[in-house]
């Protein structure tokens, strides 16, 4: 059976590798990525239209902002799905074995706890830096959100899931995830109410005291913050549900 699976995988891989022979050469001038009309428009106009040097972030959050909104919704739905499948409100009454096999009390290790106390603030500040600096260097909402979620997971690893749940209870997690999506769609709705298309940021200059170009830049930062909220909450919620088998008490 494993031989058949290996053959199927190898065959598909060989087909895909054969298909890469049809790609245009690396860096050639007539490939659609280099010479196409849309990409030259982006490369020339992004700095003028949005004042954001990082073209990737500008395309992700502004020109293709509708797509990014639904990516955030997908992340949110994934978190809800894991909660719906795994969450056990009856304290382990589903028949799964409890998280700690012998139900021994967790003794937090001294070295690990103290090191994590030193590392967690650094991690969180760096996550916020990556989020806010998305305009100038690689970063943005998703990367900053992942690192912020990793910092909460580190709190749970060092001190136990229950200590982390005191900081970020389940109610707060759900609220944070929903707030992220609300920020994103709310911005789009405000643009709609002001008279232009959905997620068309330049009309926000009517309520913000800046010109339309800087309004796009600020709105991009705002929606990236929303994305980071959702990603953080969902990452920590997935970890907490998986590590404690749905009961959110004790264990890893």
């Amino acid at each position: 059976m494993k031989g058949l699976a290996l053959f199927a995988v190898a065959f598909t891989g060989a087909l895909l590798l054969y298909a890469t022979g049809d790609f245009p050469d690396w860096g050639s001038l007539d490939s659609p990525a280099n010479g196409g009309e849309l990409s030259t428009h982006y490369i020339k106009e992004v700095r003028k239209e949005t004042e954001v040097p990082n073209i990737v972030t500008a395309v992700l959050a502004d020109y293709r902002g509708f797509d990014t909104m639904f990516e955030t919704v997908v992340v949110f739905v994934a978190g809800i799905a894991i909660i719906a499948v795994l969450r056990d409100f009856g304290n382990g009454s589903r028949g799964y074995p409890p998280a700690l096999a012998n139900n021994l009390p967790e003794e937090p290790d001294l070295i690990v706890t103290q090191t994590c106390n030193l590392v967690i603030p650094v991690l969180q500040i760096f996550a916020l830096y990556v989020l806010a600096h998305g305009h100038h260097s690689p970063g943005g909402g998703f990367q900053g959100g992942v690192m912020l979620g990793a910092s909460y997971i580190l709190i749970a690893l060092a001190n136990g899931v229950e200590a982390a749940m005191k900081i970020l209870s389940e109610r707060k997690i759900l609220l944070m995830a929903a707030t992220g999506i609300l920020i994103y769609s709310g911005t789009g709705l405000v643009c709609l109410l002001l008279g232009e298309n959905f997620l068309d940021y330049h009309v926000l200059s009517r309520i913000l005291p800046t010109d339309p170009i800087m309004a796009r830049s600020h709105a991009m930062l705002f929606v990236e913050t929303g994305v980071a909220f959702t990603v953080t909450a969902v990452m920590f919620s997935i970890y907490a549900n998986l590590a404690t088998r749905g009961t959110l008490k004790g264990g890893l």
Binding site: D109, I111, V112, T115, L118, V119
Partner: peptide, 10 residues
């Protein structure tokens, strides 16, 4: 320097 010996210890 702070974190790698900690993970080795763990």
């Amino acid at each position: 320097m702070l974190t790698s010996p900690t993970s080795t210890h763990a």
